[in-house]
Design a protein around this nucleic acid. Structure first.
Lengths: 116, 116
DNA sequence: ATATCATATGAACAATGATTCATATGTATG
DNA sequence: CATACATATGAATCATTGTTCATATGATAT
């Protein structure tokens, strides 16, 4: 009887190419940030234009405090950045990876849909 | 004094391009799946070769039950698929979006690192 | 059939995390 | 300096979620 799945070989290959635990942890932490609807919404908002906190609070229909908390998380992850403008803090995307990552997720979802 | 941040215009632009809530939710749910080290590890393992549950249990040094639970989550999200081979269930990546998404996350992390 | 191997699954528990409330910081203006 | 405006932050709460334990299902061989 032919053996189709070769445990030893598969395990060897998989083990050799496993990145360090720290990187895997960082990756998880990064994606965790995208794993929340509020934060996804904020990022989408910033796709189009810079926004101050009150703008976002209004657009999201949420409490100002909740928005600020999420902005901090996004900023700590360097996904967004901000600058002062008088009394306001204006937020904007800090690089294009955000668009790429969300774009890939979007593709996965829509192609799944088509197949069914 | 020149007004640098135009609230009305920014809000209008942002609101027009906001996808439906359902999509935003689905996106969040998808990324939530990548937001766990165990699942990231499993996906990385499957980058190289198909694996049965016991292979992964050994490679991850985790309980079989924990691995199975995570496999179910990945399978429900159509990120992986499986086939029977005798007593075993052999798992494999179901499409290349997994590689792209993780790749983008990886890039964000490493480029951040370089800049500092 | 029964014993065994491989995997799946349900319930319980502990940890994590998003939101709210209350309050503090920072900035302009009278 | 006092007041109002814009934002940030700490503590508390409620919900979500990963893991474990115990057990169920499914497949093979004797």
């Amino acid at each position: 009887m032919e053996k189709r799945h070769d445990h030893a070989e598969a395990i060897k290959l998989a083990r050799e190419n496993m990145p360090k635990d720290e990187l895997l942890c960082d990756l998880g932490d990064l994606f965790k940030i995208f794993g929340d609807t509020t934060r996804i919404k904020i990022l989408y908002l910033l796709f189009e234009s810079e926004l101050c906190v009150l703008d976002m609070t209004e657009l999201l229909g949420m409490e100002q405090s909740a928005v600020s908390h999420q902005l901090k998380i996004l900023k700590d992850a360097k996904l967004i950045a901000s600058r002062r403008e008088g009394k306001m803090n204006v937020y904007f995307l800090s690089d294009d990876h955000v668009r790429s990552i969300i774009g890939q997720g979007f593709e996965h979802l829509t192609e799944e849909g088509e197949r069914e």
